[in-house]
């Protein structure tokens, strides 16, 4: 598996403490999440705010430390690694693109500086070739002429251009994995497709494994091969994206699909009926399905026993007692 999936995630968990000394509780931002990121494929991580998807991405980028679980890079666990040399090696292979195109670039530094730094830190190319490599990277992401663009400051570029700079920066180290955290949600509609097309091109040409974190199902369908649906810190459904979207198992996935605007139908044609509630973050959750308060299919067992991910229609799996009940023998976790 390590050849085809440079990054493997096993039971990743992140808890944040809240409250004070008298009344301490924990927010289970990410709970027991497992998946692989295969080379040359784009995996969409879909969920609403509070579902934990950004936290997962940041843990993979080693910006947060996991509370439990393991992140396996080329077979070995990196979550405990502290030595600068090893951390640096990881960072040279796993890169991240952020949501806010302006916030992810230092306002007082030029484009050249942003793309150059990773080249220098990781000594990707000898000094003499740095300038040329910077230009090459800018050309790859479609920013031409590179000499002019390299001298500009972030505020002189449009949102789409800034995001391309961020992508160039991520590509500088020739990573195997790129984590894209909502890279287009703050861009104008007409330029989003350009960025998505760029991601597809990079996946095909360079075999990079992408994790595409988003709340936009339609965009995910356009770029991704596989999908992971998160709710309240857990993966509730996963599988090949076409299969999951055409025939969703989990009630939350169905709710999402019904809620996304689809011009092919009029608003009143599909009203969603769900009991009022919102994707709240789980604070010290008790056993039972976390979606039970909003689920139209909930039965008795749902409030008592936490469902497990079951491959109801391999490789599509869901975490639901009703639509993907655990067989009598031990259930096989997906992927």
């Amino acid at each position: 598996m390590t050849r085809t999936a440079p990054l493997e995630v096993r039971s990743l968990t992140k808890r944040f403490p809240i409250g004070n000394a008298f009344h301490r509780a924990h927010v289970h931002a990410v709970d027991d999440v497992s998946f692989d990121l295969p080379s040359g494929r784009i995996t969409a991580l879909v969920g609403e705010s509070g579902s934990g998807k950004s936290t997962v991405a940041r843990m993979l980028a080693r910006l947060y430390e996991p509370s439990a679980g393991a992140v396996l890079f080329e077979g070995s666990d990196v979550s405990g690694v502290r030595r600068r040399k090893h951390v640096l090696h990881y960072r040279s292979q796993v890169q991240m693109i952020f949501q806010d195109p302006f916030g992810s670039l230092n306002p007082v530094k030029t484009v050249r500086h942003h793309v150059e730094r990773p080249l220098r830190i990781h000594r990707v190319v000898p000094r003499a070739q740095i300038e040329e490599r910077v230009h090459e990277l800018l050309r790859t992401v479609g920013l031409v002429p590179p000499e002019d663009v390299a001298a500009k400051y972030p505020h002189e570029l449009s949102g789409g251009q800034r995001q391309r700079v961020a992508i160039a920066r991520a590509l500088a180290v020739e990573p195997k994995v790129v984590l894209a955290d909502e890279p287009i949600s703050m861009l104008d509609v007409s330029i989003r497709i350009g960025i998505l097309n760029l991601m597809l091109k990079l996946k095909e040409e360079r075999g990079i494994a992408f994790l595409y974190v988003t709340h936009d199902l339609a965009g995910a369908r356009y770029v991704a091969d596989d999908i992971l649906v998160m709710y309240a810190g857990q993966i509730v459904e996963c599988g090949p994206i076409e299969q999951v979207l055409s025939d969703p198992l989990h009630p939350y996935t169905r709710l999402l699909l019904a809620a996304v605007p689809d011009p092919a139908r009029k608003l009143h044609a599909q009203r969603i009926e769900s009991r009022k509630g919102h994707a709240s973050v789980a604070v010290d959750p008790s056993a039972g399905c976390r979606f039970v308060a909003r689920c139209p299919l909930a039965i008795d067992i749902c409030s008592r026993v936490t469902p497990r991910l079951v491959e109801e229609r391999p490789p599509q799996a869901a975490r639901c007692h009703v639509t993907a009940p655990a067989p009598e023998r031990a259930a096989v976790p997906a992927h």
């Binding site: 980028a61 730094r117 830190i121």
Partner: peptide, 8 residues
């Protein structure tokens, strides 16, 4: 965070 992720 991006600078951290780049290894600065």
């Amino acid at each position: 965070q991006a600078a951290r992720a780049a290894g600065e």
